[in-house]
Simulated scan of single mutants.
Amino acid sequence: MHACPLVAILRGVRPDEIEAMADVIIAAGFTMIEVPLNSPEPLESIRRIAHRFGSDVLVGAGTVLTVEDVDAVAEAGGRLIVSPNVDPAVIAHTAARGLVSLPGYATPTEAFAALAAGAHGLKLFPAEAASPAVLKAHLAVIPRHIPILAVGGVTPENLGEWMAAGAAGGGLGSALYKAGRSVDEVAQAAKAFTAELRRLLG
Protein backbone atom coordinates (compact mmCIF):
# COMPACT_ATOMS: atom_id res chain seq x y z
CA MET A 1 0.00 0.00 0.00
CA HIS A 2 2.83 2.40 0.80
CA ALA A 3 4.69 1.55 -2.41
CA CYS A 4 1.62 2.05 -4.63
CA PRO A 5 -1.92 2.32 -3.21
CA LEU A 6 -3.55 1.03 -6.39
CA VAL A 7 -4.95 -2.48 -6.88
CA ALA A 8 -5.06 -3.81 -10.44
CA ILE A 9 -8.34 -5.73 -10.76
CA LEU A 10 -8.04 -8.17 -13.67
CA ARG A 11 -11.59 -9.43 -13.96
CA GLY A 12 -11.89 -11.87 -16.84
CA VAL A 13 -8.16 -12.41 -17.31
CA ARG A 14 -7.10 -15.83 -18.60
CA PRO A 15 -4.14 -17.88 -17.34
CA ASP A 16 -2.53 -17.80 -20.79
CA GLU A 17 -2.32 -13.99 -20.70
CA ILE A 18 -1.89 -13.28 -16.99
CA GLU A 19 1.91 -13.15 -16.96
CA ALA A 20 2.15 -10.70 -19.85
CA MET A 21 -0.53 -8.48 -18.29
CA ALA A 22 1.08 -8.64 -14.86
CA ASP A 23 4.51 -7.82 -16.31
CA VAL A 24 3.38 -4.50 -17.80
CA ILE A 25 1.28 -3.59 -14.77
CA ILE A 26 4.18 -4.22 -12.40
CA ALA A 27 6.57 -2.39 -14.73
CA ALA A 28 4.28 0.65 -14.48
CA GLY A 29 4.73 0.65 -10.71
CA PHE A 30 1.85 -1.42 -9.32
CA THR A 31 2.51 -3.78 -6.40
CA MET A 32 -0.99 -5.28 -5.88
CA ILE A 33 -2.93 -7.49 -8.29
CA GLU A 34 -6.39 -8.97 -7.78
CA VAL A 35 -7.84 -11.76 -9.92
CA PRO A 36 -11.59 -12.01 -9.23
CA LEU A 37 -12.78 -15.55 -8.69
CA ASN A 38 -15.39 -15.19 -11.45
CA SER A 39 -12.56 -15.03 -14.00
CA PRO A 40 -11.54 -18.07 -16.11
CA GLU A 41 -9.40 -20.44 -13.99
CA PRO A 42 -8.61 -17.70 -11.45
CA LEU A 43 -6.59 -19.89 -9.10
CA GLU A 44 -4.22 -20.84 -11.91
CA SER A 45 -3.71 -17.16 -12.74
CA ILE A 46 -3.02 -16.39 -9.09
CA ARG A 47 -0.61 -19.31 -8.89
CA ARG A 48 1.32 -18.06 -11.92
CA ILE A 49 1.65 -14.49 -10.62
CA ALA A 50 2.63 -15.65 -7.13
CA HIS A 51 5.32 -17.90 -8.61
CA ARG A 52 6.58 -15.20 -10.97
CA PHE A 53 6.84 -12.33 -8.50
CA GLY A 54 6.99 -13.94 -5.05
CA SER A 55 6.75 -11.56 -2.11
CA ASP A 56 7.52 -8.51 -4.30
CA VAL A 57 3.87 -8.32 -5.34
CA LEU A 58 0.75 -8.69 -3.18
CA VAL A 59 -1.42 -10.95 -5.29
CA GLY A 60 -4.75 -12.45 -4.46
CA ALA A 61 -8.38 -12.82 -5.36
CA GLY A 62 -11.47 -10.70 -5.58
CA THR A 63 -15.11 -11.75 -5.25
CA VAL A 64 -14.12 -14.00 -2.35
CA LEU A 65 -17.39 -15.08 -0.75
CA THR A 66 -16.66 -18.10 1.47
CA VAL A 67 -14.03 -19.40 3.88
CA GLU A 68 -13.43 -22.21 1.40
CA ASP A 69 -12.55 -19.61 -1.22
CA VAL A 70 -10.04 -18.08 1.22
CA ASP A 71 -8.34 -21.46 1.68
CA ALA A 72 -8.23 -22.11 -2.07
CA VAL A 73 -6.64 -18.72 -2.74
CA ALA A 74 -4.07 -19.27 0.01
CA GLU A 75 -3.17 -22.68 -1.40
CA ALA A 76 -2.61 -21.06 -4.81
CA GLY A 77 -0.14 -18.63 -3.24
CA GLY A 78 -2.46 -15.64 -2.93
CA ARG A 79 -2.10 -13.32 0.05
CA LEU A 80 -4.80 -10.71 -0.68
CA ILE A 81 -8.46 -11.47 -0.06
CA VAL A 82 -10.94 -8.97 -1.50
CA SER A 83 -14.69 -9.34 -1.09
CA PRO A 84 -17.59 -7.28 -2.41
CA ASN A 85 -19.32 -7.54 0.96
CA VAL A 86 -18.77 -7.67 4.71
CA ASP A 87 -18.87 -11.30 5.85
CA PRO A 88 -17.36 -11.52 9.35
CA ALA A 89 -16.60 -15.24 8.95
CA VAL A 90 -14.63 -14.66 5.73
CA ILE A 91 -12.78 -11.68 7.22
CA ALA A 92 -11.91 -13.47 10.46
CA HIS A 93 -10.73 -16.58 8.61
CA THR A 94 -8.58 -14.45 6.31
CA ALA A 95 -6.95 -12.72 9.28
CA ALA A 96 -6.45 -16.03 11.10
CA ARG A 97 -4.57 -17.39 8.08
CA GLY A 98 -2.27 -14.37 8.04
CA LEU A 99 -3.66 -13.01 4.79
CA VAL A 100 -4.66 -9.44 3.97
CA SER A 101 -8.40 -8.77 4.23
CA LEU A 102 -9.92 -5.97 2.13
CA PRO A 103 -13.73 -6.27 2.16
CA GLY A 104 -16.17 -4.01 0.38
CA TYR A 105 -18.40 -1.73 2.43
CA ALA A 106 -21.03 0.93 1.69
CA THR A 107 -21.99 2.30 5.11
CA PRO A 108 -20.20 3.13 8.38
CA THR A 109 -22.11 0.26 10.03
CA GLU A 110 -20.58 -2.18 7.55
CA ALA A 111 -17.16 -0.56 7.92
CA PHE A 112 -17.09 -1.03 11.68
CA ALA A 113 -18.40 -4.60 11.41
CA ALA A 114 -15.56 -5.39 8.99
CA LEU A 115 -12.93 -3.83 11.24
CA ALA A 116 -14.30 -5.70 14.28
CA ALA A 117 -13.91 -8.96 12.35
CA GLY A 118 -10.26 -8.20 11.57
CA ALA A 119 -10.19 -6.39 8.22
CA HIS A 120 -6.87 -4.72 7.43
CA GLY A 121 -8.42 -2.11 5.14
CA LEU A 122 -11.68 -1.34 3.38
CA LYS A 123 -12.91 -0.75 -0.13
CA LEU A 124 -15.77 1.66 -0.70
CA PHE A 125 -17.81 -0.35 -3.20
CA PRO A 126 -19.30 0.45 -5.57
CA ALA A 127 -17.66 3.85 -5.42
CA GLU A 128 -19.66 5.16 -8.39
CA ALA A 129 -22.81 4.70 -6.28
CA ALA A 130 -21.30 7.01 -3.66
CA SER A 131 -19.10 10.09 -4.13
CA PRO A 132 -15.94 11.64 -2.71
CA ALA A 133 -18.22 13.69 -0.45
CA VAL A 134 -19.73 10.48 0.97
CA LEU A 135 -16.26 9.08 1.65
CA LYS A 136 -15.24 12.30 3.38
CA ALA A 137 -18.30 12.01 5.61
CA HIS A 138 -17.46 8.39 6.44
CA LEU A 139 -13.96 9.44 7.47
CA ALA A 140 -15.40 11.70 10.12
CA VAL A 141 -15.97 8.50 12.11
CA ILE A 142 -13.81 5.76 10.53
CA PRO A 143 -10.29 5.89 12.03
CA ARG A 144 -7.91 7.68 9.66
CA HIS A 145 -5.22 5.01 9.94
CA ILE A 146 -7.51 2.51 8.18
CA PRO A 147 -6.72 2.54 4.45
CA ILE A 148 -9.82 2.89 2.29
CA LEU A 149 -9.71 2.29 -1.44
CA ALA A 150 -12.35 3.63 -3.81
CA VAL A 151 -13.41 0.78 -6.10
CA GLY A 152 -15.77 1.11 -9.04
CA GLY A 153 -15.60 3.83 -11.64
CA VAL A 154 -12.15 5.11 -10.67
CA THR A 155 -10.18 6.64 -13.55
CA PRO A 156 -6.97 8.67 -13.84
CA GLU A 157 -9.20 11.72 -14.24
CA ASN A 158 -11.09 11.30 -10.95
CA LEU A 159 -8.47 9.58 -8.80
CA GLY A 160 -7.42 12.95 -7.40
CA GLU A 161 -10.96 13.72 -6.21
CA TRP A 162 -11.11 10.46 -4.30
CA MET A 163 -7.70 10.91 -2.71
CA ALA A 164 -8.49 14.52 -1.77
CA ALA A 165 -11.54 13.17 0.05
CA GLY A 166 -9.36 10.77 2.04
CA ALA A 167 -9.06 7.61 -0.03
CA ALA A 168 -5.68 5.92 0.31
CA GLY A 169 -5.93 4.94 -3.35
CA GLY A 170 -8.16 2.90 -5.61
CA GLY A 171 -9.06 -0.46 -7.01
CA LEU A 172 -8.98 -0.25 -10.78
CA GLY A 173 -11.16 -2.42 -12.94
CA SER A 174 -12.33 -1.74 -16.49
CA ALA A 175 -10.42 1.55 -16.73
CA LEU A 176 -7.26 -0.57 -16.50
CA TYR A 177 -8.14 -4.03 -17.81
CA LYS A 178 -11.11 -5.72 -19.39
CA ALA A 179 -11.32 -8.95 -21.32
CA GLY A 180 -10.08 -8.54 -24.85
CA ARG A 181 -7.82 -5.58 -24.16
CA SER A 182 -4.29 -5.90 -25.56
CA VAL A 183 -1.13 -5.93 -23.48
CA ASP A 184 -0.13 -2.57 -24.99
CA GLU A 185 -3.48 -1.02 -24.07
CA VAL A 186 -3.18 -2.29 -20.50
CA ALA A 187 0.40 -1.00 -20.29
CA GLN A 188 -0.70 2.48 -21.36
CA ALA A 189 -3.61 2.51 -18.92
CA ALA A 190 -1.36 1.36 -16.07
CA LYS A 191 1.18 4.07 -16.85
CA ALA A 192 -1.58 6.70 -16.91
CA PHE A 193 -2.71 5.69 -13.43
CA THR A 194 0.76 5.65 -11.89
CA ALA A 195 1.69 8.93 -13.57
CA GLU A 196 -1.37 10.58 -12.06
CA LEU A 197 -0.58 9.03 -8.67
CA ARG A 198 2.94 10.42 -8.75
CA ARG A 199 1.56 13.84 -9.66
CA LEU A 200 -0.91 13.72 -6.77
CA LEU A 201 1.70 12.63 -4.24
CA GLY A 202 4.17 15.22 -5.45
Rank of each mutant, 00 (worst) to 15 (best):
H2I: 13
A3L: 10
R11Q: 11
G12D: 09
G12W: 04
E17V: 04
E17N: 05
E19P: 04
A22W: 07
I26L: 12
A27D: 13
A27G: 08
G29M: 12
T31C: 14
I33A: 04
E34H: 03
V35M: 14
P36W: 00
L37E: 07
L37T: 15
L37D: 05
S39D: 13
S39W: 11
P40I: 08
P40H: 12
P40A: 14
R48K: 08
I49G: 08
H51V: 04
G54V: 08
G54S: 08
G54W: 06
G54E: 11
D56M: 11
D56G: 12
V57Y: 06
L58C: 06
V59Y: 01
G60V: 02
G60H: 02
G60N: 09
T63L: 05
V64A: 07
V64K: 04
L65A: 14
E68P: 05
V70C: 02
D71Q: 09
A72M: 08
A72N: 13
A72P: 01
A74F: 01
A74G: 11
E75I: 06
A76E: 07
G78Q: 11
G78Y: 01
N85F: 15
P88R: 10
P88F: 02
V90F: 02
I91D: 04
I91Y: 10
I91H: 02
A95Q: 14
A96G: 07
R97Y: 07
R97E: 01
L99N: 09
S101F: 03
P103S: 11
P103V: 10
A106K: 14
T109L: 11
E110Q: 06
F112N: 12
A114W: 01
A114R: 04
A114I: 00
A117H: 02
G118H: 02
G121D: 11
L122Q: 07
L122N: 14
K123M: 09
K123H: 11
L124A: 15
F125C: 15
P126H: 07
P126Q: 01
P126D: 05
E128P: 04
E128W: 14
A130E: 03
A130V: 02
S131L: 02
A133G: 13
L135W: 06
L135Y: 09
L139A: 14
L139V: 14
V141Q: 07
I142L: 12
P143H: 06
I146F: 03
I148E: 01
I148T: 13
L149P: 07
L149G: 06
A150L: 07
G152P: 06
G152Y: 08
G153Y: 15
G153W: 15
T155G: 01
N158S: 05
N158M: 03
N158P: 00
G160C: 08
E161A: 15
E161L: 12
M163G: 05
A164V: 09
A164P: 03
A165C: 02
A167S: 01
A168Y: 03
A168F: 06
G169N: 00
G169I: 00
G171H: 00
L172I: 14
S174K: 06
S174R: 13
A175Y: 07
A175F: 04
Y177K: 12
A179M: 15
E185Q: 15
E185T: 14
V186M: 10
A187L: 05
A187V: 03
A187Q: 04
K191L: 15
T194V: 10
E196L: 05
E196Q: 15
L197A: 00
L197T: 00
R199I: 03
L200N: 08
G202P: 05
